[in-house]
Write a protein that binds this DNA or RNA. Structure first.
Length: 424
RNA sequence: GGAGAGGUGGCCGAGUGGUCUAAGGCGCAGCACUGGAAAUGCUGUGUACCGCAAGGUACCGUGGGUUCAAAUCCCACCCUCUCCGCCA
């Protein structure tokens, strides 16, 4: 959520920012109009309330002296009706104002490349050199099916398409990678591990920015609970409506499954486990002092890169352009893994600085040096997303005989297994 | 799911319709006293919104309602604790 004062005082700047990211201006227009109207109305109704408070106090005093106050009470009843009526107007106006405000995306940071779509994203660095194959590398579906480590047909039978099912070494590999990443972030990068609920309430979804706009992209359960699309939601909401009582920065990390309806995405990358409705992910979340958030974003990205470097995978880091960053982000780096079977790049991490956008929605504050309360800056990044990581490991590690050599770093987590062999 | 108790400022806790402008305590900050400290004393100490300001308005779990006036009365809901039931 943008600061209403920023909109009030620098409307043109806000307008330019929204244009740069191709956002609709209709919500901004509505907010500007309602804000003016609201302030006028609030001033009016508060004057009336002051009148009522003063007179009511008098009534109390007069009554204690035994005087008759019937006439005053009658006129106050009318005043009360007027106040109630205006209060209702204010309430309706504020509800609409808030709802529209929640639909305005964050403003892009000045350092972003300008552009309308992904083609304007900029590669800021690359790591590793893609392996040269002596044979034609296969896609992960073919590799994995031969190894018997997943069974998409049965996943589709028990749930539906897009719900992958891992078996045997595939299942173990997922588990090993989760363990490996959590250990890395907790022991070397300074994060505290959390295992949060996998479903959250509506207030949490609003807090991180999924609602109200992205309701169609998520699974909504009974009791008004939502399946989380990312651990970002429960972990960031850990401090919702709180004043953080420990020194900043606070780093948290969590493994969770992620559930995404991917509404409208059918037909694109639907084969295998590249785009699915359920996947596992280790997420990193930071709560930081505003002045440090861009430096913190850089280290966040390197924390994610560290995972990939240790696994010996080739990747590139992209700075997303103004037209391609997500709703709540002010700046975002994507990390993409090289997948030889796809002959292309796979997004496995998205690291974003939300500045105070989420903190303002979720009301997450800290006490500044001068004693004043202020909103923190929040950041999060995948560290990293599974399934696609598995794709890269399978496709990069495949051998001519159909086996897959695993990255050295994961071997201890696999109980010493270095290679997944096809069943005899 | 059932029964009972409860939810008040950073914390503890009083307050059952009218100077509540929420007592008192703890904590914190400043000052005094002191060689320095402890102890003691004094002073200050919530948030948001409206307003150029003076000032005003709102907030006692949340949302409604009654009333001239609600922390206080009524209704619904949420959460916590205790016990019972069910249960991996």
């Amino acid at each position: 959520m943008l600061d209403i004062k920023l909109i009030r005082d620098h409307e043109e700047t806000v307008r330019q920012g929204l244009k740069a990211r191709n956002a609709s201006l209709e919500f901004l227009d509505a907010v500007v109009a309602d804000d003016t109207q609201r302030r006028k109305l609030v001033t009016e109704v508060e004057t009336l309330k002051n009148q009522r408070n003063v007179v009511s106090k008098d009534i109390g005093m007069l009554k204690s002296k035994g005087q008759d106050t019937t006439a005053t009470q009658k006129s106050m009843r009318d005043l009360g009706d007027l106040i109630a009526q205006k209060d209702n107007e204010v309430r309706d106006l504020e509800a609409r104002l808030k709802d529209n405000l929640l639909r305005i995306p964050n403003l892009p940071h000045s350092s972003l490349p300008v552009g309308t779509d992904a083609s304007a994203n900029v590669v800021v660095r690359s790591y590793g050199t893609p392996r040269q194959f002596t044979f034609q590398p296969k896609g992960h579906v073919e590799v994995g099916e031969k190894l018997g480590i997943f069974d998409f047909a049965r996943g589709a039978k028990m749930t539906g398409s897009g719900f992958p099912l891992f078996l045997g070494m595939g299942s173990k590999l997922q588990r090993a990678l989760i363990q490996f990443m959590l250990d890395l972030h907790t022991t070397e990068h300074g994060y505290t591990e959390m295992l949060p609920p996998f479903v959250v309430n509506t207030a949490s979804m609003i807090g991180t920015g999924q609602l109200p706009k992205m309701a169609e992209d998520m699974y909504h359960a009974t009791d008004d609970l939502w399946l989380i699309p990312t651990a970002e939601v429960p972990v960031t909401n850990f401090y919702r409506d709180d004043v953080i009582d420990k020194p900043l920065p606070v780093y948290l990390t969590a493994y969770t499954p992620c559930f995404r309806r991917e509404a409208g995405a059918a037909g694109k990358e639907t084969r295998g486990i590249i785009r699915v409705h359920q996947f596992d992910k280790v997420e990193m979340v930071k709560f930081v002092e505003p002045s440090t958030s861009y430096a913190e974003l850089e280290t966040l990205v390197t924390n994610a890169e560290d995972v990939l470097q240790r696994l010996g995978l080739s990747y590139r880091v992209l700075s997303l352009c103004t037209g391609d960053i997500s709703f709540a982000a002010a700046k975002c780096y994507d990390i993409e893994l090289w997948a030889p079977g796809q002959n292309g790049w796979l997004e496995v991490s998205s690291c974003s600085n939300f500045e105070s956008f989420q903190a303002r929605r979720a009301n997450i504050r800290y006490r500044r040096q001068d004693g004043k309360l202020d909103f923190v800056h929040t950041l999060n990044g995948s560290g990293v997303a599974l399934a696609r990581l598995v794709v890269a490991i399978l496709e990069n590690g495949q051998e001519a005989d159909g086996s897959v050599t695993l990255p050295e770093a994961i071997v201890p987590y696999m109980g010493g297994i270095r290679r997944i062999e096809p069943p005899k």
